[in-house]
Amino acid sequence: MSTDETFISHLVELRARLLRAFGGLLLGFIPCAYYARELYSLLAQPLLDKLPQGGQMIATEVVTPFFVPMKVAMMAAFIITLPHTLYQIWAFVAPGLYSHEKRLVLPLVFTSSLLFICGMGFAYFAALPLVFEFITQFAPEGVAVMTDIGRYLDFVLTMFIAFGITFEVPILVVILVRAGIVSVEKLKAIRRYVLVGAFVIGAIFTPPDVVSQFMLAVPLYLLYELGILVAGLVTQPAKLLAHQPSNDMDTEQKLEEAETRKRND
């Protein structure tokens, strides 16, 4: 097969995988759109529970009551269909990977997705209630707390993304160690700087209150420590592999060369 034919076949495969991922997202969006109002009410519950007597949420634009719940429905559909989307990505890139790369990439993709969802859950159940309670307690006397539903959605999405990325820190640490960019010993040596940096990041990516900054900085540092622990465990098999007899290493190298020839053909 010529290079042009191989390139075209990859493009056709990519288009097919994208269409399947989009189709799965669309199928997930249909039931979510039907319950869009209920989904938004569920999303707004952390704030509604903390509003004072008479406080409520408002819509300041004509189309906001329609488009904001639809955005929430799309976000819910993306989360629900995420395993299907990741499978399509995996099915596209897997033929070009070596066996040892497949063994590493697939657990990382699954774990990173799970950690991102856990970060969103932590923001919803732990961080947002404390943030809203702190903010509503500081509302001046006589000020009615009424938040626009569009602004609230933007705020919640920002928090979800910030905490979701924060929970990816162990994956980042493992990748850096496995790639040989930094050692576990070096990561342990810079702990104090990471702790300071965690609070700086919390101050940048969260609202200007102490509670939300603390709620982001502390998990960020603890997840960094978890990443060091996991990286130390993961690198042990690699060290043992490096000390294997040469005939075992030659066998693995021959298998990789056979896979390369198969992909080229």
Score class of each variant (00 low, 15 high):
1 M>I: 14
3 T>L: 15
13 E>I: 15
17 R>F: 13
18 L>M: 04
27 L>S: 09
29 F>V: 11
29 F>E: 07
38 E>V: 12
40 Y>T: 03
41 S>L: 15
43 L>D: 10
48 L>P: 01
50 K>W: 12
51 L>Y: 06
52 P>W: 03
53 Q>W: 12
55 G>S: 02
56 Q>Y: 15
56 Q>E: 11
56 Q>T: 08
61 E>P: 08
65 P>C: 04
69 P>V: 06
75 M>K: 01
78 F>N: 01
79 I>F: 11
81 T>D: 00
82 L>R: 00
84 H>Q: 14
84 H>G: 14
94 A>W: 07
102 K>L: 03
106 L>G: 02
108 L>W: 12
115 L>V: 10
118 C>L: 15
118 C>V: 14
130 L>E: 01
130 L>N: 05
131 V>E: 03
132 F>V: 09
134 F>G: 00
146 M>Y: 01
152 Y>I: 15
152 Y>E: 02
153 L>Q: 07
158 T>V: 15
160 F>N: 03
168 E>V: 04
172 L>H: 04
173 V>Y: 01
175 I>Y: 13
176 L>T: 10
178 R>A: 03
180 G>S: 05
187 L>N: 02
190 I>L: 12
192 R>H: 06
193 Y>N: 09
194 V>M: 10
199 F>R: 09
203 A>R: 00
206 T>M: 04
208 P>G: 11
211 V>R: 01
211 V>I: 14
212 S>F: 14
214 F>W: 05
219 P>D: 00
222 L>H: 01
228 I>N: 04
231 A>H: 06
231 A>C: 11
235 T>G: 12
236 Q>D: 10
239 K>D: 15
243 H>I: 15
245 P>H: 04
245 P>L: 13
245 P>I: 11
248 D>C: 13
258 A>I: 12
263 R>T: 02
